[in-house]
Design a protein around this nucleic acid. Structure first.
Lengths: 357, 357
DNA sequence: CTTTCCTATGAATCTTCTG
DNA sequence: CCAGAAGATTCATAGGAAA
């Protein structure tokens, strides 16, 4: 695998030469097929309303669909079974992208709306201002154990769940790459903030990120900055040169700045019994629910007893509340300095990383 | 054409019996094919009342596509050559909808994002909160001379172009139809504010609006209120009965309140029109100045009328007081609980998410 | 009557590890 | 692969009860 390189070549062909199942995350910003729009502007379709015209149209859409199916098929082959893919598009192409992704077996996780802070107005006043683009986020398949850094996204959003609508400015100013004439180098350069959120949400440091339509290099640049590895594909030498220069200028953040809010799911599991053994909650200790309406006694093997009922902290909590399940760590409390404290505090004190979220 | 009726029957079959080319606007809220698997519980163990109705179940994508192609084909036949169609969906189905619409010859004008003010959270923390739905707005074909009330939309948005992302609350509270047990009558009742914006944007009084999936009747009810004619199709007798009752209760606004006009002013942060849409100050509401010496009536696009004069809240206030300018937010008052209250209170009470995103 | 608290609920593709 | 157990997880509103 050619790590941290921008490969020159056609997207499908170049992907075919790479080994399968090794990519953790793909970000793809495919072309919108401008040819399609030109074809469809041919005069007076509505008057004819006929077969000839629909044949024309069908051929055009079919060409775009074939291209889309080809690159998405290769992308899916390269993707690790637990990897995810992001594809961005507008109403011109995103519906075809999404339908083909579903047909190929991708499992859509979210459609994300990038709300542009500063979109181009509609000059003719004939439509609503097209103020957003759509990203499709999908796993390789329905059974994928994909990565989603939930707590990091929540932290990024003032401690409320991140929604599917993202409000971000366009790429402008110094961030926008210019050519020798001072004009924008690439017509659709994506803002770094967009890639930042995408990569922080769905990858971790050292993950391999693939961008089959590299363009001005926002994906590899942000991957490098965030400590992710990348493979990028681009066919235009001018874009490759500019993107390579951009990546070279980029500095990887120090490790301690790459750490995100940890997920409790990924914290090491600590058996409740270990706190019994260590004497933090010795056998015989009484535990309560939050309202002090239920109580149970700790036994030497780390199970709880309450009357005739016995079980793990989770099982007994579920039993006593007639619930299908229960997180015993947050359900049960013990008395410390006269205050009822969740037993989860013991895990937090043993491993402060757990406190997050 | 059976004007202003809710027809009982299967959607495709019933459409086949109608004459073609006479419908000005279609609003369609087809089944989403959600593919929900198990039951879902909130963190407090309560069960989420998901959509498990048989009408939303399809064997596979192919079956759903066939159904979609069938009803969209008939919809296109019924549509006037200059008519437009709105179709709403989520990521489960909207990509298939959009691709099939393009294949059938519809010409997409915008994809509109309905950003939900109060979406259901993601309870397991495994995805982004699914906080929006997508509407596709399309003309019958590329050459259609479709209707778009640009100035009305601009007026509704405080004289700034209306964008493709709309922030509107879910249908809750008194607006939500209940069955005999006090439970929601229909699992997916759409808010009136959504239909208000759709109909004011793309139709004019006396236009014929078709809804092939009538459900709880939001489309015919809002069509009647706004002076549009309708044909609605629904197969479930319970929904028909409730929708018919709802339409019968609805009152058509007087003609002078239905007229929409252009306006020119700069943009405060929160559009006055959004409060009209959401029903906080519905069209027809009377506003007063602080001394109750002047009065004006709210119209559907958020302008005010007073006798022969019409304008935005700011403009009309200035006109009536012969002042060069006027802050309509503090000038105009409405009666709430018998007390004259400045309309500015609505902005104060409004949700901060609207502006910040 | 006002303020505060509690409960209900919405188009939802909603877990992961060990044995 | 399956069964079973561990254990992680919610935001904006509306409405009613309680203070």
């Amino acid at each position: 695998m050619p790590f941290d390189q921008i490969l020159r070549g056609e997207c499908v062909e170049t992907m075919r030469a790479l080994p399968g199942g090794q990519v953790d995350c793909i970000f793809a910003d495919p072309p919108y097929n401008l040819q399609l729009r030109g074809e469809l502007r041919r005069p007076d379709e509505s008057i004819v309303d006929g077969v000839d015209d629909s044949w024309d149209k069908f051929a055009d859409y079919e060409t775009y669909d074939r291209f889309t199916r080809d690159w998405l098929t290769e992308a899916r082959r390269l993707l690790h079974k637990d990897g995810t893919i992001w594809v961005i598009g507008s109403y011109h192409n995103v519906f075809r992208l999404g339908a083909i992704m579903q047909d190929l077996g991708f499992w859509i996780l979210n459609d994300i709306v990038w709300r542009k802070a500063n979109p181009m107005p509609n000059f003719r006043g004939r439509r609503f201002t097209n103020a957003h683009e759509t990203l499709i986020w999908a796993a390789r398949g329905p059974a994928s154990k994909y990565r989603f850094n939930y707590q990091a996204m929540k932290a990024l959003n003032d401690d409320v769940q991140m929604r599917s609508d993202w409000y971000l400015p366009l790429c402008t100013g110094n961030e926008r790459l210019k050519n020798a004439h001072g004009l924008k180098l690439h017509p659709t350069q994506k803002p770094e903030s967009l890639l930042h959120r995408v990569l922080v949400a769905s990858t971790q440091p050292e993950d391999l990120v693939l961008d089959p339509f590299c363009g001005s290099g926002t994906t590899p640049a942000m991957a490098k900055r965030l400590g992710r590895r990348f493979v990028a594909i681009e066919r235009h030498p001018d874009y490759i040169a500019a993107a390579q220069e951009r990546v070279d200028r980029e500095v990887r953040l120090p490790d301690e700045q790459l750490a995100i809010t940890p997920a409790k799911r990924e914290a090491p599991r600590v058996p409740f019994g270990s706190f019994v053994e260590r004497g933090a909650l010795p056998a015989g200790t009484t535990l309560f629910d939050r309202q002090r309406r239920l109580r149970a006694t700790v036994t030497p093997d780390g199970t709880l007893v309450s009357g005739a009922q016995r079980g793990s902290i989770h099982k007994l909590g579920a039993q006593l509340t007639n619930a299908p399940s229960c997180n015993g760590w947050t359900f049960w409390h013990f008395e410390r300095d006269g205050v009822l404290t969740p037993i989860d505090i013991l895990r937090t004190e043993a491993d402060p990383l757990r406190a997050a979220g």
